[in-house]
Design a protein around this nucleic acid. Structure first.
Lengths: 139, 139
DNA sequence: CAGGATCCTAAACGATACTG
DNA sequence: CAGTATCGTTTAGGATCCTG
């Protein structure tokens, strides 16, 4: 679902292989792809943003500061492809498209938010550790 | 703590700015860096692997299949820098180095594992969604 | 064994311009 | 407005060789 040559759906991979789940550690585990989408630089932010409810394209662009149009579109497509995001476009002019989380998307998004919150909440501790590390290794 | 020119510690960034947390959405939010380490391709796998207890370098290399020596070393250093991983080296020959999670690391690792487990557990649903998507958009 | 140094490729990413 | 297309840059990542 991606014209960009880099993103491959691994459609060529035989189903038997793609079904071989159960071990994230094994190379070519198909869940790794989904994990990649979800934990990607912008995937995380977009999922958390959408937990706040429906957003239009430009809303997201503004909320997730730093994201380019290209990456926003691309990440949204990955998340839609995985069934996490619902895209509703209204045939009006100028175009009007609404993005929201599917029930499935809500669940992952919450997990992701959980992680993000933990990091933000423990950031002082982390910074302390970083400072210690720098002292010891005199970086 | 990384000689690789790409990984910058942003030491030049004023502390006042680095302390401005509370909003992951804002560009240059310092937590984004930590999030990047944790959610990186190999960071996720390594953290989950270490939940299983102490590992030596080559143990990890074998367990996390597909990781190169370079990336394993680099990711471990990032995680150690953030205070998530403890590195203990014994001055023997041949070298003997043990990696384990710090208490702080245990906490993130659990969050990460939670997410990974969710994805593995819901992978059938996700694949269904993907198939539907392909039908509709005739990919 | 545990990596560091070096070199290189491929993929991710960003900026800009353009379109229905 | 919501993208796509194109292009150029940067970064991630891998392969190989080397060392204490």
């Amino acid at each position: 679902m991606q014209k960009d040559p880099d993103i491959q759906l691994e459609l060529g991979t035989p189903l038997s292989e793609r079904m071989r789940r159960g071990d994230l550690f094994s190379e070519h585990c198909p869940s790794r792809e989904v994990l990649k989408h979800v934990t990607s630089r912008w995937g995380v932010l977009i999922l958390v943003a959408l937990l706040g409810g429906m957003h239009r394209f430009s809303d997201l662009r503004r909320k997730v500061s730093g994201v380019s149009e290209k990456m926003l579109a691309q990440t949204l497509q990955c998340l839609e492809y995985d069934g996490f995001v619902l895209r509703q476009s209204y045939p009006v002019v100028p175009p009007h498209v609404e993005y929201s989380l599917t029930p499935l998307g809500m669940e992952v998004a919450k997990k992701v938010e959980d992680l993000a919150d933990w990091i933000e909440g423990n950031f002082p501790k982390i910074m302390d550790a970083q400072e210690k590390f720098k002292e010891i290794n005199e970086v």
